[in-house]
Simulated scan of single mutants.
Amino acid sequence: MFGRDRLHPGERILYETRPRFILNSKSTIIKALSAVIILYLFQWIVEGAGALDNLLIANYGVTVAEKVAWLLTGIIIIILLSILWDVISWRNRRYIITDQRVMVEEGVLWKRRYYINHRKIVDVSFSQSITERLLDSADLEIHGGHEGTNIILRDAPSPSKIEYHISRFTERGYDDVEEILRELSSSRRREPGFADPEFWRPVG
C-alpha cells in the first residue's frame, strides 16, 4: 500500500524528503545523552551501592549493589530500544510532492497517509525558529479550502524548494501540469553535471 503503487495511475513524484532528523527527534537526542551519562556514572553508582552493602547486610540482611547494576542495565536497554524506535519512526515519515497532490506518510506498525490535491490548496504558510533557520528547515502548513483539510510538514528541509514545487501548480493551475513537467525536465537537462566540461569552466 505504501510502495510505488500508492500513486495514482500516471502520477509522478516531483520531490520526496523526510523531516530534518536533528529537529524532528529532539527527544531522541535527550535519550542518547541520558544513556551516555548513565554509562559514564555506572561504575561509580554501583560502587557507591556496594559501599552500603555491609551496613545493609548487618541490619537487614540484604544487598543492593547487584540490584542497582541490573536496574541501570535495564534502563539503558530501554533507552536504546526507544532511540531505535524513534529512528525507525523518522525513516518511515515522508513528505511527497507529486504532480497531483502533497502527501504525508508515517507510521511503523500502523501506516497512515493523508494528502491534499493541488487544486484544493489555497495557501501555504511556514514558520521558522532560529534553529530551523540555521538548518534550512521550517514547519509548512498547507491550507485547503475547508476547515480540517490543512496538513503540516513539520521540520521539513529546504522549505523554499517545497514551496516552489507547490506554487508551480497552485499559481498556474492544475491544467498546466504537462507544461510544468516539461519545464522541470528541460531545466534539469540544462544543469551541467560533474562530467560536463561546462561545470568546471570558471564563472565570469
Rank of each mutant, 00 (worst) to 15 (best):
R133V: 05
F169Y: 08
L181P: 01
S160N: 14
V102F: 06
F199Q: 00
E105R: 06
E132D: 11
D5R: 02
I151A: 05
D196R: 08
A156D: 07
S129N: 14
S27Y: 13
G61T: 07
S185T: 12
G107T: 01
S125V: 11
Y164G: 15
I37P: 02
M103H: 09
D155C: 05
E47Q: 12
M1S: 14
L135H: 03
K120V: 00
T98N: 12
I162G: 00
T131F: 00
I152T: 14
I75M: 12
S185L: 15
E141I: 08
G204I: 09
E16R: 12
S167A: 14
S186K: 13
I30V: 10
E183G: 02
I116T: 03
V46S: 04
E132A: 10
I75W: 14
I162D: 02
R113N: 15
I88C: 05
I76V: 14
E47K: 08
D53L: 10
L7D: 09
D196S: 15
D155R: 02
I45N: 01
N24S: 10
S167W: 12
N150Y: 03
I97H: 05
P192H: 07
R119Y: 03
S34V: 08
V177E: 00
D136K: 09
D176S: 08
D53F: 04
L72D: 01
A32N: 05
H165D: 13
I180A: 07
A138Q: 01
H118M: 05
N150V: 07
I97M: 13
R201I: 09
W44I: 15
G107Q: 09
S129W: 11
E132Q: 13
V124Y: 01
E16I: 10
I130R: 12
R172N: 14
K26F: 13
S34W: 04
E47I: 10
F199C: 09
Y174W: 11
A195W: 03
L80N: 05
Y174A: 12
P157K: 00
I166C: 00
I152V: 15
